[in-house]
Design a binder for these strands. Structure first.
Lengths: 234, 234
DNA sequence: ACAAAAGTGTTGGAGATACACCCATGA
DNA sequence: TCATGGGTGTATCTCCAACACTTTTGT
């Protein structure tokens, strides 16, 4: 073995698939890919999942957290690495050329990206108009537009990962508001798993986990029998 | 958003954790970290898992395959990405300085590595003295020396991944020779899971999977009742 | 009274666990 | 004949799936 040849430069990014549940459907948080800039045709701005280049001395998990916070003002949420995407041409599609040339210092450079997914409750995060996050918006997962780069593929891999994680872990609770009903929890599971679940069996299963805590309170303002509220304490 | 700052150069590598089962214990394939070179104190050569920098236009899976083949002559095996390691200082430990300066074109550069694991049968791969792989050697997983960089951590994460994969997939068969006995298969499961399994229950489970095929043959040359041989056909 | 979702138990089948003895071979 | 691992069956329990009606509230 001799010295490895000087490798050609390569950029590393992270991309975050942020799932949000609104009580009804599973959503993904999308941003406009870079804010409008003079001399750039805005129609060329695609939707994308929030991601950016990893900082010079930044650990990956750190970087994912920072970038998500910068682009969406989301903090302190469950964030998990699930797969690294390294197709040498993943950023070089025709649709992505214009953006790269405007927004990247080295548009010709290969970009490898580390995929993370995260989970929040739509209730607890409404994109705020005044910030960087002004462009962030929830999209129902089955109505996603064509996204920048290979982001559609990244989202669908994240979804499979989430689906299998849901079976043995308790991550679903990250997707709900602090107080929630069992029906909301069930609808969440159904959206993720894409199949209907039996109400009685579902409740049986949930109720025997100790981290699911019934509050004394009930829903109100609903036009039907008010449900018991629960919370989650790990 | 303005142009991202020119990011400082960064190298990308892949590292392969190759698990091998010898009928008794679970092993990991280690290599000497780079062949001896004039003017380099051989005592500075550490053991490492086989990995190297990703090629300029190479996809990650491809790269993992190529590098594994180059360093160990292993081809056509199960190879799966499991996690990317990006601690900014992961290659800058004291113990790794000397090697980096001799073998890497850019020893000061941060290296992010994509971890893969793979599975082979020790029976079917004995490192051959004549090749690049001359330095490759099996080590029992519970007696690993201190490895280069963060390779010990990479191995232990790979092991957890393997352990959970074993439950629902059929990957164990990659670790056995073409013909094997049920006891060997059981010992393999036990080494990976690190707990004893009941013989009758284990056999019941295995026998009802159709890809496990009993051959007409029996072991011989053993000093006990010879066992039925099986093979695996997916 | 009606509409809408909340809430509640039982049964049957499948799969997991626990457990102990006889068998075939080589030395 | 002895030592060594190979090979086999049954009973119990737990987990999962299927399934329909009554209750509480707001209008």
């Amino acid at each position: 073995m001799q010295k490895s040849p000087p490798s050609s430069p390569l950029d590393l990014s992270v991309d975050n698939v942020v799932f949000g549940f609104d009580g009804e459907n599973l959503n993904v948080l999308l941003i406009r890919q870079g804010a409008p800039v003079d001399g750039f045709d805005e129609s060329k701005l695609q939707m994308a999942i929030p991601g950016d280049l990893v900082g010079t001395d930044e650990d990956l998990d750190e970087s994912a957290k920072r970038i998500l916070a910068e682009l969406t003002s989301l903090k302190g949420i469950y964030l998990k690495q699930f797969k690294t995407f390294g197709n040498p041409n993943r950023v070089f599609g025709l649709k992505d050329q214009a953006w790269l040339r405007v927004f990247r210092a080295n548009p010709e450079r290969r970009v490898v990206t580390v995929g993370y997914y995260s989970l929040v409750s739509v209730e607890e995060f409404k994109p705020t108009p005044a910030s960087f996050a002004s462009q962030a918006k929830w999209w129902p997962i089955d109505e996603l537009p064509t996204l920048a780069f290979d982001h559609n593929a990244i989202v669908s891999e994240a979804l499979s990962t989430l689906r299998s994680a849901l079976n043995d872990k308790h991550i679903a609770f990250e997707l709900l508001p602090e107080k929630f009903t069992l029906s909301q929890l069930q609808r969440l599971h159904e959206s993720v798993l894409e199949r209907p679940l039996d109400k009685r069996n579902f409740r049986k299963n949930m109720k025997r986990m100790e981290s699911l805590i019934p509050l004394g309170e009930k829903q109100d303002g609903v036009l039907h029998k008010p449900a018991q509220l629960y919370t989650y304490k790990k």
